[in-house]
Design a protein around this nucleic acid. Structure first.
Lengths: 128, 128
DNA sequence: CTGTCGGCTTCGCGTAGAGCAGAACCAGTC
DNA sequence: GACTGGTTCTGCTCTACGCGAAGCCGACAG
């Protein structure tokens, strides 16, 4: 990533578009989780439940494995077309995926162990 | 937007990142609706139910009115931070917003009249 | 021990598009 | 006519999308 505008000068000039903070929020309970992060968790959860490899899903979705890895870790903001493509590659509908994201966003989930923050069971059951 | 690379030459050089097709799908029932479009409808639906003006919501969310207009019409892909900001400005949680999007994505909604494609009632009731 | 493989991640890059400001346009109301 | 609310257009800056190349790590074989 390029240095933000004004690096090397006094930091009195804000960037025109704020740089996206990619700090993983799961280590900061005060920070609310962002949509892309939860989406990524759900996608990875569904993929694991399907026993799929990252490279397989990526190939079927028509994206690079590197990129899918980044999407899954909430590092990138995929376009709606990309979301649809990955969902299709995982044989899950956009409805069920969105529901899984919503379920995973629920505050009650925050007290669940960190390793299972995406409730993919709903998406899985509906898609099966 | 800048002309794609290679404009003025033979169109044998594909763009490095495929240009996003912004054709409105509501005029093409064969085309599945994209996440950003449904999101936008939901945001506008919620805003209308709150009796809010676009400029008010935009100001509170910290975005320009032009941009919020584009988001609501599914023309732009807002970042997760932007989504959170607009949701906050509308006093709706990300959970409820996501649920509203999911509800609106359900196939059963497709036979509803075009003017009320976003089921914001869920989001409204939960946020009230 | 070394070498290979599989699965995933990191790095760096070109350019698409996010997000905005200013101006103009459109429709409705008084 | 003026005003309001929203949309469209134009052009701009520069962030970050999406990917190729390379790297990391664990497991396994010889």
């Amino acid at each position: 990533m390029r240095p933000p505008y004004g690096v090397g000068m006094a930091s009195s000039i804000p960037p025109l578009r704020p740089a996206i903070d990619r700090t993983a929020p799961e280590f900061s309970p005060v920070r609310e989780r962002l949509w892309r992060q939860v989406l990524g968790e759900c996608l990875r959860g569904i993929r694991h439940e399907r026993g799929e490899k990252l490279s397989e899903t990526a190939s079927r979705a028509g994206v690079s494995p590197q990129y899918l890895s980044e999407i899954e870790r909430g590092l990138k903001e995929p376009s709606s077309e990309m979301i649809a493509a990955v969902a299709g590659a995982l044989d899950v509908t956009l409805v069920d995926l969105t529901l899984a994201v919503a379920e995973s966003l629920r505050p009650a989930q925050h007290s669940v162990s960190r390793g299972a923050t995406c409730s993919a069971a709903t998406a899985y059951a509906l898609a099966a």
